[in-house]
Design a protein around this nucleic acid. Sequence first.
DNA 1: ATTCCACAGGAAACAGTGGTCC
DNA 2: GGACCACTGTTTCCTGTGGAAT
Length: 402
Amino acid sequence: MAVQDPVEKMLDAAQNGMSLLVDREKLHFTYMPDVIQHRDTEQEMVTQSLLPILKRSRPSNLLVYGKPGTGKTLVVRKVLSKIRVRVARTDFPIRLVYVNAKEETTTYGILVSFGHQLGLSERDLPPTGLSIAEVFRRALVAVGSGGINAVLVIDEIDYLVHLAARTKNDVLYQLTRANERLKAGSLALVGISNDLTFKERLDARVLSTLGEEEIVFTNYTVEQIRRILEDRIGGAFVSGAVTPPALNLCAAMAGSQHGDARRAIDLMRVAGEMAEREQSGTVTEGHIRAAAQKIEENKEVAALRSYPLHEKLLIVAIMRSGGSSTGEIYAAYKELARTLRQDALTQRRVTQMLSEIEVSGIITSRLVHQGMHGRTKKYKLAIPAEIIKSTFEGDLTLGDVV
DNA sequence: ATTCCACAGGAAACAGTGGTCC
DNA sequence: GGACCACTGTTTCCTGTGGAAT
């Protein structure tokens, strides 16, 4: 048989409609399935605490916990959308507001987003310039004057706690006490968190109000993830495209990492895309393994690219020195900065940056006590130097130093 | 037992930006 | 146009640390 031209082969395949993935959307984490599996109890509990809305009274405040990829946000959004449908048929003024504390990044941003979703305009709530107290006041006026019964869902609420602690404002306390200030309308809070320990950092007064009801989302078991995957695969791939061993491996890989269904679904999507690109008729174990590696590498490259110049210089300094102390890295960094005609930052700032980079997993450190010679942290790369070189080579300012 | 190193990392202050309000 | 605000990124100042050297 004649060897087929790869380009012709791809064109043929495309024309014949041979495609493994028929509906990519179903393998995206924002996709809302009709039925959320293995979360019946949790859905009932969320509904229970929000039920008073239908009876025209204020629902309980609610805290929802669980590791990433356990379906918390999905369940809360699903229940809210069902409530929304029920209420839409009546003239009862409710507003379901969703903000993500991590995406908004500042206390101000969270409150402004809340206000905008209540119907306030850019003019009523400008993106900057007002005091937080003023933004809060305006949002509450909107609730009060419209007699609105608002449910504010704060996803990744632990970030808000962290922000509030850093900027020393008590926005969460204000939010939990909002009903005391409202003459008409009401405000209920739903907090969602990946961090089970953040409660310890909460003010006791806040906790008593916010934690009226609590729901903990347990991790999915490997078997549950397998069934969730089966369900998604059914809609996303052509029938029989994913081999059973591939499915099992995908569930096992994600399941062993704290039962994260989101990761499992991502993994399956990337594996599917790889199989499709190879013109393979099925998704195999090999594709799953390759996808896992690719996701990991992509994460590293994306993190490297996203760093500002001085962080990049530090990573290069560590790469060059290979397993050295803060002092040595700082010296190497200053040298690099001089070469590139940049003002070097202080050592204090550099130690802070090193800690920040370490969080991303690109470098690791070990605290070393050297007796007479003081203590220091020894840093080394946690990823292959080749990835750093290839990522930074294209960088206009860094090209010459890597 | 005491000294001393080379930092780690917290706290506070500051500069700069981009805005509102009166 | 000046007072004020939030926020980020940074500097300055400072205290704490564990074990080798003395």
